[in-house]
Design a protein around this nucleic acid. Structure first.
Lengths: 275, 275
DNA sequence: ATGTGATAATATCAGTATGTTATTAACTAA
DNA sequence: TTAGTTAATAACATACTGATATTATCACAT
């Protein structure tokens, strides 16, 4: 390529004199909303169907927003993609590795970080229930799984997060998938992370309908009733089991194994059908 | 908030001494894949059903990739969101305004821009056919609508772009929605824009199934046959008109107006139903 | 042993939606 | 008036869906 520009420079000369810092540039961060399903309290007999949606937060040890709870994340480095940065930060800060990760949206409202101009590429991670114990025992002391309860109405979503005696809450107004939500109320969440959590929840619910995303939240082996509970939890609707079984039938494979000591007819154990 | 960090600083002191430039930061760009449907050659009688999918490219006047064709875009500024940057650059460079714009994906593979570390947040714009003439007459001299032909097979997409006597082509391998495509072959497209175009096309086709995205490509008033042609063009499949009419019925409203001088039974003109 | 209560799994059936073909309608051009 | 063309809808068989009912299989209590 020997074309010259209006200054008579070829591409090599141009690149040699190019100085990126003439222009202002933002820091680019990643923040990850890691969802998982809690197993629920397991009375051996007459157990409660108490699965709950959980998400992973970290208590901030430094400024800004010291003491508040934030999504795991950090700054992207020059030798990695935003996706690998999200995986790296999630594992460093919380011990969660090898989970499904999806890029959601770049949050870029000016002023969203009081330190400086920071654009954050939000990600969603779905953590298989089979991996939860390992994570709980990792050495990421400040990371905690919070039980998430969300109630939506007239365009707003109220988030309630509980982990032990820590309780956080926030309300945001949704503006569709293409605009950042607005924070109406925020108690205990750092930065604009209430926005990001609400956005991720909306996307998770939306993609439920036309994808097999929910399987990433399941352990390797599961019963169809367990799978249905997860769908019901995420969609907020009660489903009829006969119809549900028909719908997921092509996405699962029977193992021939059955649950034991359940106090009722054993249920067959399935695995995900990877086509 | 009067909490102190391990250095005994409160938040105000911390922010006063914070220096962003201690850390490397990328430039953040936006690039927009603007799609539109060409009206096709209109023989008044026995006209060809020759709608085509078009996209907007700009010939680069400076280094790098001087002379090659690139997506309209540019760097994000500190006082705007990536979405407004995408709208601004698209209008500045091509005259396209007030179109539907959707954020797609942040492209961040190291080395994707030879000048420096640049992360690009790709967007997709859908331009209503009613606006095409205005744009063609704008003063954006270097912008051209290219006719896009894409053929996919065994995980690869071959792109062919034509505008007058300019012909570009590229082949990329898709890796799902969560990884950037890989460039196999590239003739005439700047940077990694072949990747971005292929990704946008995949998303456009995917969202066709479960959204009313396609209406953004239509003029305000249209017939159901025209709408069907657009769906057929984008999906690559032939559709049966009786079934198609039933499916879109709830998304459109009759106007009571009809086409004229068509050489056959007039077709009724519809507008989009905004619920 | 036998019954009770629980959930799993499937059968059944009506109503709806879908794919397909056939038919009718309305226009232009010859 | 006829041929050619596309629009629009009717008609019908099949598939899918929501809902209820039925049967299966276990743990436990009596």
């Amino acid at each position: 390529m020997n074309l010259l520009d209006e200054n008579g420079m070829d591409e090599q000369q141009f690149l040699a004199q190019y100085n990126q810092k003439e222009y202002p540039c933002p820091s680019v961060a990643v923040d990850t909303v890691a969802f998982a399903i809690s197993e629920g309290s397991q009375d051996n007999y007459r157990k409660l169907p108490s699965k709950q949606l959980c998400l992973l937060l970290i208590q901030r040890a430094g400024h800004p927003h010291i003491g508040q709870w934030a999504l795991p994340g950090g700054f992207v480095e020059p030798d990695e993609t935003v996706g690998s940065a999200a995986c790296r930060e999630l594992e460093e800060e919380t011990g969660v590795a090898d989970s499904y990760i999806e890029q959601l949206f770049a949050f870029s409202t000016p002023g969203r970080d009081p330190r400086a101009w920071v654009i954050s590429v939000a990600h969603m991670a779905l953590v298989s229930s089979g991996k939860l114990e390992a994570i709980a025992g990792s050495d990421a002391q400040s990371a905690k799984w919070f039980v998430l309860n969300a109630s939506s109405g007239n365009g707003q979503v109220a988030l309630s997060l509980k982990a032990g005696d820590v309780e956080l809450s926030a309300t945001v107004a949704l503006n569709g998938e293409q605009l950042e939500p607005e924070i109406i109320k925020n108690d205990g969440l750092a930065f604009d992370h209430a926005k990001i959590i609400a956005y991720a929840l909306m996307r998770l619910r939306g993609e439920l309908e036309y994808s097999d995303l929910a399987f990433n939240l399941m352990p390797e082996k599961f019963t169809l009733s367990e799978l249905q509970q997860v769908y019901e939890l995420l969609s907020g609707k009660r489903l009829l089991s006969a119809a549900f079984r028909r719908k997921v039938n092509s996405f699962v494979v029977q193992t021939g194994e059955y649950t034991q000591n359940a106090g009722h007819r054993p249920s067959q154990i399935y695995v995900r059908n990877k086509e």
